[in-house]
Simulated assay, not measured.
Amino acid sequence: MIKVHKYTLEPHSSNIFELPLNSKVLSMQVQHGNIVVYIALVLDSSGNIAQKKETHKFHVIPTGVSVPLDLETIQYLNTAMLLDGDLMLHVFHEKIE
């Protein structure tokens, strides 16, 4: 079983979340001016969020900024358009092993 949760990302930074093992990032959206990711969390047989965790990191990067990320190990999610298009932020996801 799964349960979808929403997590708000802070712009211009890396955001780290401890999520249940085998969780799946579904999408990145802009909601009420905030960048959010929707994640399907794995539930145990009792319907509770699984206790085993893994670390997920979300990078929110403005256009034109250089960052030391490896495109072989991270996943591009989407681009968030904020401030009527004056601020474009690109969101990448990686699992920390």
Rank of each mutant, 00 (worst) to 15 (best):
Val91Asp: 03
Glu97Gly: 08
Met1Asn: 09
Tyr38Gln: 06
Glu72Met: 12
Ile74Trp: 13
Val4Trp: 02
Gly47Ile: 00
Ser23Arg: 03
Val60Lys: 13
Gln75His: 12
Leu77Gln: 01
Val42Gln: 15
Leu19Thr: 10
Leu21Glu: 08
Ser23Asn: 04
Val36Tyr: 01
Lys53Ala: 05
Gly64His: 09
Met81Pro: 01
Tyr76Arg: 07
Val67Trp: 05
Glu10Cys: 04
Thr73Gln: 08
Val67Ala: 04
Thr63Met: 01
Asn22Thr: 06
Glu54His: 09
His12Leu: 15
Asp84Leu: 06
Leu9Ser: 09
Val60Leu: 13
Lys24Ala: 10
Gln51Cys: 02
Pro68Phe: 10
Glu54Tyr: 01
Ile61Asp: 04
Ile35Trp: 12
Lys6Trp: 02
Tyr76Cys: 04
Asp70Ile: 02
Leu71Cys: 05
Ser27Lys: 13
Val25Trp: 05
Leu43Gly: 04
Glu72Cys: 13
Lys52Phe: 06
Ser45Phe: 06
Leu77Tyr: 00
Pro62Tyr: 05
Tyr38Arg: 10
Ile49Leu: 11
Leu26Ala: 07
Leu9Asn: 03
Val42Thr: 14
Lys52Glu: 11
Tyr38Cys: 03
Glu94Lys: 09
Glu54Gln: 12
Asp44Cys: 10
Val37Ser: 00
Glu94Phe: 03
Val25Met: 11
His93Thr: 04
Glu94Met: 10
Glu72Asn: 13
Ile39Lys: 03
Ile39Ala: 03
Leu21Tyr: 04
His59Asn: 10
Asp84Tyr: 10
Ser27Arg: 09
Phe58Glu: 08
His32Trp: 06
Lys95Phe: 01
Ile61Asn: 08
Asn34Cys: 07
Tyr76Thr: 02
Met81Thr: 02
Lys6Met: 09
Glu10Arg: 14
His5Ala: 10
Ser13Pro: 07
Ile96His: 09
Gly64Ala: 02
Asp44Ile: 07
Val42Lys: 15
Leu89Ile: 01
Val30Arg: 00
Thr55Asp: 02
Asn34Arg: 12
Met81Glu: 10
Gly47Leu: 03
Val65Asp: 00
Lys6Tyr: 02
Ala40Asn: 11
Ser23Gln: 07
Lys3Thr: 12
His90Glu: 12
Met1Ala: 11
Ile74Phe: 10
Gln51Arg: 13
Ala80Phe: 00
Ser66Arg: 08
Gly64Leu: 05
Ser14Glu: 11
Lys6Gln: 14
Leu82Trp: 01
Leu71Trp: 06
Leu19Cys: 04
Val4Tyr: 03
Lys53Arg: 14
His32Pro: 00
Met88Ser: 14
Ile74Thr: 04
Val65Phe: 08
Lys95Asn: 11
Glu94Arg: 08
Ala80Asp: 00
Thr8Cys: 03
Ile2Phe: 14
Ser13Glu: 13
Tyr38Met: 07
Thr8Ser: 04
Ser13Ala: 15
Ile16Asn: 11
Gln75Leu: 11
Thr8Asn: 01
Leu87Lys: 14
His59Asp: 06
Ser14Arg: 10
Tyr76Phe: 15
Gln31Asp: 13
Glu94Ile: 05
Leu21Ser: 07
Ile96Ser: 08
Met1Leu: 06
Gln31Thr: 13
His59Cys: 11
Asn78Tyr: 10
Ile35Glu: 03
Glu94Pro: 05
Met81Gly: 03
